[in-house]
Write a protein that binds this DNA or RNA. Structure first.
Lengths: 345, 345
DNA sequence: ATCGCAAATGAAAACGTTTGCAGTAGCTTT
DNA sequence: AAAGCTACTGCAAACGTTTTCATTTGCGAT
């Protein structure tokens, strides 16, 4: 007995090595690990001992090849610097790992071409399902999904066409509520700092909702009073500065998301503009910080962690063969805090 | 010719189908895609046409099985709600996808047991390399890595033992600089809001650095003046409130990270304590928001995106057979802004 | 034309699992 | 103690690639 370790030194032990060590066949070893109720308890234990002794780690690719399941879910997300996506990713990852799945993540800086490529890469990696953000995608992406006949979930947005599985909120409606709240406070002169609307249906819907609510009370929104800004506090500051310079006279600013609103708020503070006495500011998303500021930021609560978790649950349910509602709408309530107040006289 | 599509309807086309459609052998089809210079240009094109026509997508698991490479890198990260990790993840993902690699992400809420499990799951999925955060891990994790003989990179922390490959900053040293800066401003009564130090070597090093710098000038830090708080703005607010209640009299607060510092700052604002006149506050990390506040937050710049990107580059280089320095230290300079000032008389 | 060589192709053996089917134990029952 | 049944176990064939090695093809030089 010169060789204590039967397998090559460099390579990892495989199931065959485990089987040999346990004195059973390959098939039995496999079953002992995957379906222990099919194999005698004693045998089972021998196999488990062998596994521990050899430090055997299953070879996922081989398993995936044989079972045609990778136990992996792909997610294609915008940059995670946006805390809402970070939260959703975390919640999703959590949900999946509880069920023995792992998250394969791709991020893409809002570029549809890159998104398509990333999605392709995920599909090649053999993901069992996909989580996407929003409805705005390269048409090739939908074709790809179709061909691969992969289950997927659209998050954040709702597909009122009823075709895609989705879990999200009505950005338009929530935005209407924001505008109405400000109208009810007596505001008549508005400005909007929107997120970038290209390739982003959420940003477009939010802008559209605000426009619509104002229009329905006969209030227009000149283009000089609307600015698009990339998602970031700094951009919010700059946008407000620009609005004040080019088209002053508004008493309320509706922002496309919280970081923009926080930027606007900080710009006001830096300039000595009092909020909400001289200017009301509303955000969207309800990031953690929104509640901590003084005054607290009036905003719309979009439960991003819940969206991530629900998307995970739904996908897992579908993979388990259960049926789920095609569309799951999550309520996004208006949270009134201190940054909105009556219009100045 | 009744059947136009030779493969089963439900299943995806495989390389064999492509080969048949192109009228070449399996081997040639494989080469045409992977090493086009080995096959005649005309043949190559026929294969590519067949690929497009059939919508062929390679089966990653099969490829991984054959090549023993998955083109996938695993990352085991704490929650991404912390923007520093979100940034690093994004930068890492970017770096990898440029090289045709994909990121397999696991997150773990600072629980070493969960971290170990997650890492195992990643290894089973066949990652070619791993990115870890910090040095504090279950010993089983290091054993696992050893056995799998997987290349990995430790991020954020530095292994002065010279054993692990790592890219990070000296938290201790940077923290010393923070304390010295405050000492130089004349402060003598300090409080510290530290991150949770259990399972977190960065938080420990930062606390130790502050302690050490104060001690070297003969200043003690009673335990009533030290509080640990989970990473979050709200926890920072609460911690400062607690310190003010239990052990008032300090003129400077050193915080374990920026969110805690921002929380402390907001608590001051809510209580009418002026910063820095009555109280100086310093953070750590330099998150985006730190520069946007007024006054700006004095903090230490830890380039998290760069850490993520460097970790990716290093791992890719090693996978390509190149040698890299075992330890890569990134400078973490003190950024003095408005929240620190002379000690009140 | 023929030869020779390089370049292009093909056949078949991996890669490490799972799983249907067939066979062999081990019990229970008489 | 034999029979019958069930509960386990083993053999071998997938799964879809890549890659080695042998073979064929194409082409320029003789």
């Amino acid at each position: 007995m010169l060789k204590l370790r039967p397998m090559a030194l460099g390579s990892n032990p495989k199931l065959a090595d485990v089987a040999r060590a346990a004195g059973v066949s390959l098939a039995t070893a496999s079953r002992a690990l995957a379906q222990p109720d099919l194999v005698r308890a004693k045998t089972c234990e021998r196999v488990r001992d062998a596994v521990n002794m050899l430090g055997y780690v299953p070879h996922g690719a081989a398993r995936a090849l044989a079972t045609r399941r990778s136990k992996t879910i792909g997610a294609v997300f915008p940059p995670l610097d946006n805390p809402i996506f970070a939260k959703a990713t975390h919640a999703l990852s959590r949900e999946l790992s509880q069920a023995g799945y792992t998250l394969l993540l791709a991020t893409h800086d809002y570029d549809p071409g890159a998104e398509l490529l990333a999605t392709r890469a995920l599909i090649e990696r053999g993901v069992d399902g996909l989580v996407l953000v929003g409805m705005d995608h390269d048409p090739g992406l939908y074709r790809l999904l179709e061909r691969a006949s992969l289950p997927y979930e659209i998050t954040w947005s709702l597909d009122h066409g009823g075709y895609h599985h989705c879990v999200g909120v009505s950005h338009r409606l929530a935005s209407v509520h924001v505008a109405q709240h400000l109208l009810d406070l007596g505001h008549r002169e508005f400005a909007v700092i929107a997120g970038e609307t290209a390739h982003n249906d959420r940003a477009r819907d939010r802008l559209a909702g605000a426009r619509e609510a104002l229009a329905s009370r006969g209030i227009g929104l000149p283009s000089s009073r609307v600015r698009e800004a990339p998602f970031a506090v700094a951009a919010g500051k700059a946008a407000l500065a620009g609005l004040l310079a080019d088209a002053p006279g508004f008493t309320a600013v509706i922002c496309g998301n919280d970081p923009l609103a926080i930027g606007a708020l900080l710009e006001c503070r830096a300039r000595g503009i009092t909020v909400p006495d001289q200017l009301s500011i509303a955000g969207f998303d309800d990031v953690d910080l929104a509640a901590e500021l003084t005054p607290g930021l009036t905003t719309v609560r979009v439960p991003s962690a819940e969206i991530g978790a629900r998307a995970g649950k739904r996908l897992l349910a579908r993979l388990a063969g259960k049926r789920v509602r095609r569309m799951e709408e999550i309520k996004a309530p208006l949270i009134v805090r201190g940054t909105t107040g009556p219009a100045p006289a």
